[in-house]
C-alpha cells in the first residue's frame, strides 16, 4: 500500500474529475428518472385500460432485470435497431429507464396509500377528480414518497459506478486507471472512492431522515389524513 504515491496531486485531481462525472450523470439521471417515474406511476395509478397493463408489464420487466444488463443493452443492442447513443447518454438512458421503473412503483404505492375514504369525502364535497388529486391525493402521497425517493436517488448515485463497463469516465473508471499504474495504489484509491461516495450519499440519507421525521410529525397532527401507514416495505424496496 502506497498512500503517498496514490494520492499525488495529479492522481487526486484525476479522481475528483471522475467523481465530477459521476455527479453530473447522477444529477441528469435523477431529474429524468423522476419525470419518467412520476409519469409511469400516474399511468398505473389511473388504471387506464390497455395502457395501464402495458405500462405495468414494461415496468415490471425492467424492475426485475439487473441494471448491468440494461446498460449493456442500451449501449450495445439498441444500435441494432437504429438507436445510437454516446457513452454519456447511454449511461443516462439506462439509469433513467431502470430507476424510473423503480420510482414509478414508489409513486404508485404512495398515491394508493392515500386513504380511500378521504378521496371519496373530497369528491362528495364537490371537488372534481382533478381537484381531488391536486389538493388531496398528491400532497399527502408526495409527502410519503419523499423518504423512499431519496433512498432511490442514493441508489442511483451508487449505480452510476456500473457505467464503468461502457468506459464512462466516472469515478470507478478513474480509479481503475490510477491503480492500473501501480497495484500498491489499489487499496488507497478504493478507500478514497468509498469516502467520496459515502460523503454525498450519507448527507442525502441524513436529509431524508430529517424529511421523514418532519413528515412523521405532520402525520401525527390531526386532520392530516390517516391512510394506511407507509409500509416499511416501501422504504426498503427503494434500495437496489
Amino acid at each position: 500500500m502506497d498512500f503517498a504515491g496514490a494520492f499525488s496531486s495529479d492522481n487526486l485531481l484525476f479522481l475528483l474529475k471522475g467523481f465530477g462525472m459521476t455527479l453530473i450523470v447522477a444529477a441528469v439521471a435523477i431529474v429524468l428518472s423522476f419525470i419518467l417515474g412520476t409519469a409511469l406511476g400516474l399511468i398505473r395509478y389511473s388504471r387506464i385500460k390497455g395502457l395501464g397493463t402495458l405500462t405495468m408489464l414494461v415496468v415490471e420487466t425492467i424492475r426485475n432485470l439487473p441494471l448491468l444488463l440494461i446498460i449493456f443493452f442500451v449501449k450495445f443492442a439498441l444500435p441494432e435497431v437504429g438507436i445510437q447513443l454516446s457513452t454519456f447518454w447511454a449511461a443516462v438512458v439506462a439509469l433513467t429507464l431502470f430507476e424510473g421503473a423503480m420510482i414509478s412503483e414508489i409513486v404508485r404505492s404512495g398515491l394508493q396509500s392515500v386513504n380511500k375514504g378521504l378521496v371519496e369525502a373530497a369528491r362528495s364535497s364537490g371537488l372534481t377528480q382533478a381537484q381531488t388529486l391536486r389538493h388531496v391525493v398528491l400532497p399527502i402521497g408526495m409527502r410519503r414518497m419523499v423518504p423512499p425517493l431519496v433512498s432511490q436517488f442514493i441508489s442511483l448515485l451508487k449505480d452510476t459506478s456500473l457505467a464503468v463497463v461502457i468506459s464512462l469516465p466516472e469515478l470507478m473508471h478513474s480509479a481503475n486507471i490510477v491503480y492500473g499504474h501501480d497495484v500498491s495504489y489499489v487499496f488507497p484509491v478504493l478507500l478514497l472512492a468509498a469516502v467520496l461516495y459515502f460523503a454525498v450519499n450519507y448527507s442525502l440519507s441524513l436529509l431524508s431522515k430529517r424529511l421523514e421525521s418532519n413528515e412523521g410529525a405532520r402525520r401525527r397532527t390531526p386532520g392530516a389524513g390517516k391512510g394506511k401507514p407507509a409500509a416499511p416495505a416501501a422504504t426498503a424496496k427503494a434500495q437496489a
Binding site: M1, I154, K158, D159, T160, S161, L162, V164, M172, A175, Y179, V183, S184, V186, F187, L190, A193, A194, Y197, F198, N201, Y202, S205, Q239
Partner: peptide, 23 residues
Amino acid sequence: VEFFRNIPLLLVVYIFYLGLPSL
C-alpha cells in the same frame, strides 16, 4: 450499516477482489 448502504456494490466487490490481495 451506514457505510455499506452508502457506497456502491461494485466498490465493495473491488475491495475484496483487488484490494484484499495486498493484505
